Computed example of a mutant assay.
Amino acid sequence: MLLDTPICDFGQPAPDFRLATPDGTVHTLSQHLGDKGLLVAFICNHCPYVKAIADRLAQDAATLLDEGIGVVAIMSNDYRAYPADAPPQMQAFARRHGFPFPYLVDEDQSVGRAYGAVCTPDFFGYNAAGGLQYRGRLDSLGPSSGPDRDPELLTAMRQIAATGEGPRDQTPSMGCSIKWRD
C-alpha cells in the first residue's frame, strides 16, 4: 500500500531508542544526536521505493556524517511475515548499498510506533535539541533517477545543522506502508 508521510510536527521531541544492528551492536538516540542534529530514516529491504533510493541515501548520509550530522536507519517491519526484511538480509542490503550508518532492528516495533512512522522510506530530521524539523522526502527524483536531482533532505539537514530550524515547505516522502504485526 502506497502512503505519504504526514506534515512535519515542528519541535516534536525525538523518542528515545535503544536498538541493535543485526550483529548485536546497541545504539541509542543520545549516541547519535549531536550538536548538529540527527536524521532517523525508517527503511526496509523489500520496498521498491527504498530500493530505488538506497544508493542516493547512502551518498547523502555519508555527506551528512562527514559534516557532523548523525544518521541512523531503523527497520520496523514485521520481518517474520516479510522475510526479505529479516536481520541477515538487512546486513546484506546495507553492504550492497554501502550504508555508512547503523541499520537497526526494531524487533517489537515500539520505536516505529513512537516516532509515528507510516511508510518506508520515512525520514525524521532533528535539530541538536532533539526537536523535529524535517519530515519530507529524500529528493525530487523519488523512485526514478536522473541528473536534475534536488537533494531536499540533504539541504534541509544542512539548514537544521546551521540554524536549528528546518524548511517550512516540505514535500512528503512516499513509500510502502510499515508492515505492523496484528
Rank of each mutant, 00 (worst) to 15 (best):
D150H: 15
K36N: 06
I43T: 11
L153V: 00
F42E: 06
F124W: 05
Q31G: 10
S76T: 14
I7Q: 14
F123T: 02
Y49E: 04
C47R: 07
G112E: 09
A114E: 07
M1W: 10
L57S: 07
A81D: 13
P13W: 11
T163S: 15
F93I: 00
A128K: 14
D106V: 05
R18Y: 00
L2R: 15
T25K: 15
N45I: 03
D169H: 14
P167K: 14
A20P: 00
A92L: 12
D66P: 10
Q59S: 10
G68Q: 09
I160A: 04
A156N: 07
D66V: 09
R135M: 08
L2G: 07
G70E: 02
F17K: 04
M174L: 02
R181Q: 14
D23A: 13
Y79P: 00
G142N: 11
Q109I: 13
G131A: 08
L3S: 10
M1I: 14
L104I: 03
A14C: 15
V105L: 07
E152Q: 14
G98Q: 08
N127H: 08
A14H: 12
D66I: 08
A54C: 09
M1S: 15
R158T: 00
A128I: 01
A61V: 01
V26Q: 13
E107C: 00
Y126A: 02
N45Q: 10
F124V: 05
T163V: 05
G34Q: 04
F10Q: 12
V72K: 01
G166Q: 11
T63F: 11
S140L: 10
A84V: 03
R158F: 04
D106W: 01
G24Q: 07
K179I: 10
I160R: 07
D85W: 09
Q159W: 00
A20R: 04
A41Q: 07
Q170C: 03
